[in-house]
Design a binder for these strands. Structure first.
Lengths: 251, 251
DNA sequence: CGTTGATTTGAGTAAGATCAAGTCGGGTGG
DNA sequence: CCACCCGACTTGATCTTACTCAAATCAACG
């Protein structure tokens, strides 16, 4: 029988957090790191499909996604669902719910995930005690909006093929900087229905677009593995050029 | 000859800012207000159609919209444009550009506008000197994302009629809490082409949807004046229930 | 083997785009 | 005052993209 970690105690100390080693993340000072460590409440695991934040629920839970994939979504009363964004390791989530009392969107795990949750009032203290980290959180919030803006541009103004191409480029790049690409291939847990819900398409049409990209030789996507064969051309199809990614903060 | 205000000095002192009187805005402490006043650089006017922030430009300008309407947008290389959100008096803008060095979206004035601009490094200082206001800024950033999320849900999953209805409800409510509704009518500066670009529709189809709402007796929209005759029903059409608006900070 | 979830394929349809002319109203200059 | 111009809005006709419905395939798993 394996030993259960005591609740309330982080299993991996933040100093040895594997994410911090990645080049995307900003270095933090020793003092800041100590604060972060002290304000982490627990490291918790959830299985694939678990609801991490309930849409309309009242959690104030703020967390960093340590490993695994998740997605933010909203639903209409009749069940139509829109996926707002995909969360990858290193992403901070739940800020909105924490700041507004009611979660304006749900969050669901796409794979098994591990979260680092913060104390409830952590944000208030953070601002007071570590203004620089406070600015980082604001940066993350602004960055979150930028990502949603990108998706909105796609859904509003790109056609179906462009949208699918754009999403694949977008996720491929983000996953890359989260260190998830091994040997040119990426473990890709989204079903075609998820892609459809992200892009505002029907899943049948999404399927046909993916096949088209396959036949064009741009990608391979099979059994949850994504390979991008021709990134430049895929970008061309997507009409998508992202700006060079700045180094981002990690809490 | 009228006396020109000295550059760098706000014309209206923040203490007497007409916006602060509105019930939507959170009260601020005397000390915080003094800080805000001291960090405002200038009050500037721009004519209708002016570019306030250039897409891809390098301003770090953060500002509060004092009066008038504006909109944030992104364009594809071939000219297709997506309006990301509408800015109303009291909205804080330019945070993203300020925090990321390059403006990920443009901002254009829909009417003549007046802006209250901040000093360039204001945000850093704000966090250090007034952590509570710092949290407020983060709140605003998170709120900005929530608004974009709402639009994304519409554009992704609502049909054309629902989208138009939703946008009108949304703007009517927001304009209401900005104190812009006088005698049941609202000066509404968006052209139908703007509405189309916000909702990811063609302007022809947008026109037909508006006419349908008119014939249903739900709204009157003519010569830049919007009246909502049956808010409840319009909401029903939109499948849109907003959560009760919390009191928001104003910088 | 049967069940379940994901993907694929085919056929018919509809929502919304596109193209092409108008109209309407307000301004401008003769 | 009138002619005209321009931008916003309207209308009609046609076309296309993407949706819907339906069924088949396929792999994983108990």
């Amino acid at each position: 029988m394996t030993r259960q970690p005591r609740p309330g105690v982080a299993v991996t100390p933040c100093t040895r957090c594997p994410l911090r080693a990645l080049p995307t993340f900003k270095p933090v000072s020793r003092g800041e790191l100590t604060w972060i460590q002290a304000n982490k409440r627990a490291e918790r695991g959830f299985p694939r499909g678990a609801t991490l934040v309930e849409e309309g629920g009242q959690t104030r839970r703020v967390f960093t996604l340590l490993s695994g994939w998740a997605f933010r979504f909203k639903t209409l009363t009749d069940g139509r669902r829109q996926i707002l964004n995909i969360l990858l390791p290193g992403d901070l989530a739940g800020l909105q719910a924490s700041l507004m009392d009611v979660a304006p969107h749900g969050i669901e795990a796409l794979t098994d995930v591990r979260l680092c949750t913060f104390r409830d009032a952590a944000m208030e203290d953070l601002m007071r005690e570590h203004p620089k980290l406070g600015l980082d959180v604001t940066w993350l919030a602004a960055q979150g909006e930028r990502l949603t803006d990108d998706v909105l541009l796609s859904v509003g103004r790109r056609n179906a093929l462009e949208r699918v191409a754009m999403l694949l480029v977008y996720l491929y790049k983000r996953a890359g900087s989260a260190g998830l690409i091994t040997g040119g291939a990426l473990a890709f847990p989204l079903t075609q229905a998820h892609i459809a819900d992200t892009l505002g398409l029907s899943f049948v049409h999404t399927n046909r677009c993916i096949q088209r990209l396959r036949k064009l030789g741009l990608i391979q996507l099979d059994k949850g593995q994504l390979q991008v064969n021709d990134l430049r051309l895929l970008r061309r199809v997507a009409e998508y050029w992202e700006q060079p990614a700045p180094s981002r903060p990690l809490l």
